[in-house]
């Protein structure tokens, strides 16, 4: 009995030692020399592996930071300025501060304003639907409403609003990683500066059709009427292909265009409700 026990203990111990030695030599033999700073930079990063920086993941980004000559072209959208600052100070480099951004959905054609013209009976995916046809409303630019952006979001920051059938961004959770921008086959979602006090103004439409065609398909479409361009005191609005676009770097948030727009296609977000002249302002995220 005792001999059995002793034999078992000895043989197992020997086996363990031999295997440990093999493992040790293999690890030595195939050791990969890596810059130890990559580990440290990776530790500073948020670790979301969202790919918003353009790298495959946080480790690849850390490697990129360590190898890079300057950090100007690199940015972690999730960590924002603070993380980039600590990465820069660790690596002894400097980094320019970037304005925080947020994803905005540039379509406001909900079920009431954009009449259905077709029924769709296929796999519920915007990508599949967009390769098939223009969409089940008259507007061939607008949101298809199957939520590819929702699936793509790693931060639970975008959801379909069942009332409007449009996606809605949670500005507190959104890290501006850009995953939804890439996921949307219609290229509706854009990253824009968050703006002072989170206030921002944007054209919530990307329909490039002529005014009449666009209006027929959707009552809240941008019809390219030039009114907003004329009223803007800062030359922040440009109109091309029958579509207005507000440059967020030039916009001073005066809100003149919002009142001027005849189709309410220009949205203001997070502004106080106007008291003297009650204009139907659509505050999405309150």
């Amino acid at each position: 009995m005792t001999t059995t026990i002793i034999f078992t203990i000895v043989s197992l111990t020997l086996l363990g030692l031999v295997l440990a030695l093999i493992l040790y030599f293999v690890a030595q033999r195939f050791k990969v020399e890596e810059d130890p700073r990559i580990d440290d930079v990776e530790a500073i990063l948020p670790g979301a592996n969202c790919g918003g920086c353009g790298f495959a993941g946080c480790r690849a980004f850390a490697e990129g930071c360590v190898k890079a000559e300057s950090l100007d072209a690199l940015s972690c959208p999730v960590g924002g300025n603070e993380v980039m600052k600590s990465v820069a100070s660790y690596l002894g480099m400097s980094v320019a501060e970037k304005a925080p951004q947020v994803a905005v959905v540039r379509c406001n054609g909900n079920c009431d304003t954009r009449a259905k013209t077709n029924h769709y009976d296929g796999y519920s995916s915007c990508a599949v639907m967009s390769t098939l046809y223009s969409g089940d409303t008259g507007c061939s630019y607008g949101c298809l409403g199957h939520g590819d952006c929702v699936v793509s979001c790693s931060f639970d920051a975008i959801h379909m609003d069942p009332r409007t059938g449009l996606p809605e961004v949670d500005q507190d959770k959104c890290t501006a990683c850009g995953a939804c921008v890439k996921a949307c086959p219609k290229m509706i979602i854009e990253l824009r500066n968050k703006g002072p006090k989170n206030r921002r103004i944007f054209v919530s439409c990307i329909n490039k059709d002529k005014g009449g065609v666009a209006r027929k398909a959707c009552t809240v479409a941008c019809i390219g009427c030039l009114k907003c361009q004329k009223v803007c005191p800062f030359e922040a609005i440009t109109i091309s292909n029958n579509l207005a676009y507000i440059d967020f770097n030039k916009c001073k948030l005066c809100r003149k265009c919002v009142t001027e727009c005849p189709t309410h296609a220009i949205w203001e977000v997070n502004f106080p409700i106007r008291l003297p002249k009650p204009v139907e302002s659509i505050n999405v995220e309150q």
């Binding site: 013209t117 077709n118 098939l132 046809y133 223009s134 969409g135 061939s140 059709d209 065609v213």
Partner: peptide, 10 residues
């Protein structure tokens, strides 16, 4: 001018 094709795109 642009006119809808089979898939509805102009």
């Amino acid at each position: 001018e642009p006119y809808p094709d089979l898939s509805g795109n102009l």
